[in-house]
Write a protein that binds this DNA or RNA. Structure first.
Lengths: 243, 243
DNA sequence: GCAGGTACTTGACTGAGGTCAAGGAGACCG
DNA sequence: CGGTCTCCTTGACCTCAGTCAAGTACCTGC
């Protein structure tokens, strides 16, 4: 919330670690130079807001490092955490392309460096290099699948199953297989945020965690999660489905 | 469900009523001729399935006339109706672009004429005319907004508010203002399907309708809905939000 | 006509998850 | 050190919507 603190930092697109994972990897050196010159990079601290729901959208944001949560709020102030955005992800391209204001907000969950690329630059690149548009299209297609999956799950699955599913998804990025073959997750999320990801209240998150502990499905200490048998998580998903 | 009945019909892209509303309207005559030659059109009766979740995706489907429901099912067989597709809408472009199997199914809700355009044709058009890709991108962006809105609503709003919202959305396409200024909707949906659109069971739909009747918010007879004061629907939305 | 559908309604019951309220555990700062 | 954050947990309670079961209305085909 400290808008005055955003410190400008300098980052180079050509040496950007995340570049291989971005849509921009299809650009020629010449085109990439355009991005590099036109961008503005800043560092954000945990809790800093990159953009708000309702803000005008003047371009796109590209994550160089860190972690960002995409939130959406309803009229009553209730909030959900739609997804996490990682280094290499481009945020806000949808609102920009559709010519809308931002329809969700982005908040740094960890210390992050994020580059802003102006709309003019994006527009001219889309014109120069049609492949870029197709890359964004594919990205949008994937996001849409995820969103529709989430719609389905939030209306059909009980909380336990949704949480099991969340852990399975987070496993792909934050999971490490321990020495005994057990799974260990080192999550970047508070419990509140996990709750917000599956659309429940913090109290329910607490209770769900406890019930997982009691059933020996997973063990939680701080933001570290131990899962002895991954199958238990999968079974949790399937089990609730067959009722 | 009568796969044998799909009767091939002939339709011309150049005279297609829906053409102005499609992504294809950016094509040159020459390019449109490619679509026209390559397409295969069929008539579907209510209940006929155009494609199933899990089917391989070989191209895209374009609706010439009629109405199609896009459904998605979870492991337990529970189903939701994600959205309606109308003449001019192109279906399946996402799975096609992402190279996935179809991740939802499409079912004709009314007698419909639908054209199939092969993947090869789409690919070559995307290459020839980059604007086409951008059009699809915009479409995807809109769909994504809708889906995220739905995720939010399904976890934060009670059934009454979700139903009020659904009626307000359906109003834009199916609403007529009666002589006394009241709103009349002539819906193309069964109550089951309305229930599926907001992710509830038919029994709950029945009860919600009854409670709207009792509160004089709307009156239902068959698929016709009378709404004396639209504000009541809007208030229903806001009211539940401020709790 | 009747049998067999499907769509819809209704009632009684249940339970998952939200709400309210209180208290504990750290972290940070004077 | 105590004070005040915020995050998290717990218990008691309640309500909304799902489930189960039965019944009605309205098709279509025989």
């Amino acid at each position: 919330m400290n808008d005055g603190d955003k410190s400008a930092t300098s980052v180079n697109c050509f040496t950007c670690q995340a570049r291989g994972r971005t849509e921009w990897c299809v650009l020629t050196d010449e085109e990439l130079a355009l991005v590099d010159q036109g961008k503005v990079c800043r560092q954000y601290l945990p809790g800093d807001v990159i953009f708000h729901e309702g803000d005008e959208c003047h371009g796109v944001h590209c994550i160089e490092s860190g972690l960002v949560g995409i939130r959406k709020m309803d009229a009553g102030g209730k909030e959900i955490l739609l997804r996490l955005s990682h280094p290499g992800d481009t945020m806000g391209y949808r609102s920009f392309l559709a010519g809308n204001d931002h329809n969700n907000s982005a908040e740094a969950l960890e210390q992050s460096v994020i580059c802003f690329v102006s709309g003019a630059t994006v527009r001219s690149l889309l014109k120069k290099n049609p492949t870029l548009g197709l890359r964004f299209l594919k990205h949008a297609a994937r996001d849409l699948d995820d969103a529709e999956e989430k719609v389905l799950q939030s209306t059909t699955l009980p909380v336990r199953a949704r949480f099991a599913h969340l852990l399975l998804v987070l496993k792909d990025r934050y999971g490490v297989t321990g020495e005994d073959g057990a799974l260990v997750l080192e999550l970047p999320l508070s419990r509140q945020d996990m709750a917000a990801m599956i659309g429940i209240r913090p109290e329910s998150m607490s209770r769900t965690i406890r019930s997982f502990e009691e059933d020996d499905i997973a063990h939680f200490s701080g933001r570290r999660v131990h899962v002895a048998r991954i199958d238990d998580l999968i079974r949790e998903l399937e089990h609730s489905a067959e009722l």
